[in-house]
Design a protein around this nucleic acid. Structure first.
Lengths: 228, 228
DNA sequence: TAAAAAAACTGACATATATCATATTTTAGA
DNA sequence: TCTAAAATATGATATATGTCAGTTTTTTTA
């Protein structure tokens, strides 16, 4: 099994603040897992008892509403850490995480992370900063959900996806989303998402080939996102 | 000026984890302020450079959307602390806080809080827990905003307000919200909020006398919030 | 207290979006 | 490869909600 000390992925998250010693201890107690596309990392109500460090792949993090509809809260990719929240507040998971492609993740048990949080202020501060940032983004999403139209939100989503995920030379975004996933990110009915995406396609703003897609006209999408 | 060591308000927030010594230092550098109803504690883009501890009163925390409409993200009351986020991420405020009644607040400068975060793991952990909790709530709000109807959200809002704020013997909730405020919490047009509130009133679920209001039928409101 | 301004309210109407039904295409499984 | 199932697509229709316009009530201020 690979060692945390040598793992590039940690550069992208709070674990980079751990000392060599601390990393060795983490490495010794971590476990590696392969999560197949469509399978859950964890589900609402699970006691996670640790955090996941994403080595490769993408997952969608979602929650069921009382209406029985699913809402995707965020997409998590290589380098991200997930599960800190339930660990910190010592509660079962509030969200469900499902792999969008085959994933490689490392699981670090709770006790180890808690130990580091207690002993390494730099690490704690980094986790704190991370959370402050997530919270800021969440607030912005609330505003968008409450005040923007579905079309605006969909346009914005497309732009954000392009910025967040890798793009191949010919512009294809490295991400496998179903139309239902799009709908569940934006918070609309699948049919509405399909209609709007077709419309964007017709207008030459995006290109879809099955689930592969690329952004053709960012400027126009930005304008739509702003309400024009 | 009153001393933090003797202040009851700190019992309700992370400051309770500070030692007597630390509290004395905080007390020595804090400043007290009176914020008049309708006046801002801070506004989007301000560099706050510290945190506010709310000694008395309520404020609304909101953000402008690109559409030019205002969204209230949360209501902050006695005992709450606000401003930690910009402090931690060292960024200008992302939100605006405006007093809903006359407020009494203490301002603690950034350096003092940073010092405590560095030296007192219990305090840091408490701030971390607080933030994890806020984040969980934010996620739930996102789901509601995305998936519930305006009517559902308004019903839910009413219930939450009753639970969060003091209620007099005759059931009146100690909170001064305009119809526009209600609309901006729920994320709808003022007219729509007015219409739905009148409807709830007609059906005997709430009672309004000007801005004073009380919940008459929590059970029914809960059912509406769940979509019935 | 009167006048002006702001807030609350009501109605008419437009429209974005959900829902339901059905057709077509793609994917997965035997 | 064939079949069944799932995903995508499209149309018709219903409905929730936004917008605009105007009235009434409340609050502010001169």
């Amino acid at each position: 099994m690979s060692k945390c000390e040598q793992c590039i992925v940690k550069q992208f998250n709070s674990l980079k603040h751990l000392s060599r010693e601390e990393l060795k201890r983490v490495s010794a107690c971590k476990t590696s897992k392969i999560i197949k596309k469509g399978k859950p990392l964890f589900e609402e109500g699970d006691r996670i008892n640790g955090v996941f460090c994403i080595k490769d792949g993408v997952c969608k993090v979602s929650k069921m509403s009382e209406n029985g509809r699913n809402q995707i809260i965020s997409l998590i990719k290589k380098g991200d850490i997930i599960g800190e929240r339930s660990l910190i507040s010592d509660e079962p998971a509030n969200l469900t995480a499902i792999a969008l492609d085959d994933m490689e993740v490392c699981f670090i048990p709770k006790e180890e992370i808690i130990k580091d949080l207690e002993k390494n202020p730099g690490f704690t501060m980094s986790v704190l900063k991370d959370m402050a940032n997530t919270l800021k983004k969440a607030d912005n999403v609330i505003v968008d959900m409450a005040q923007k139209t579905v079309k605006q939100r969909l346009a914005e989503t497309l732009i954000r996806l392009k910025d967040k995920f890798d793009v191949t030379d010919d512009g294809i975004i490295n991400l496998q989303l179903s139309r239902e996933d799009f709908a569940n990110i934006v918070g609309t009915a699948t049919e509405s998402a399909i209609r709007l995406l077709s419309d964007f396609k017709k207008r030459g703003l995006v290109e879809f080939k099955g689930k592969e897609f690329k952004i053709l006209d960012t400027k126009s999408l930005e304008k739509i996102a702003q309400g024009f």
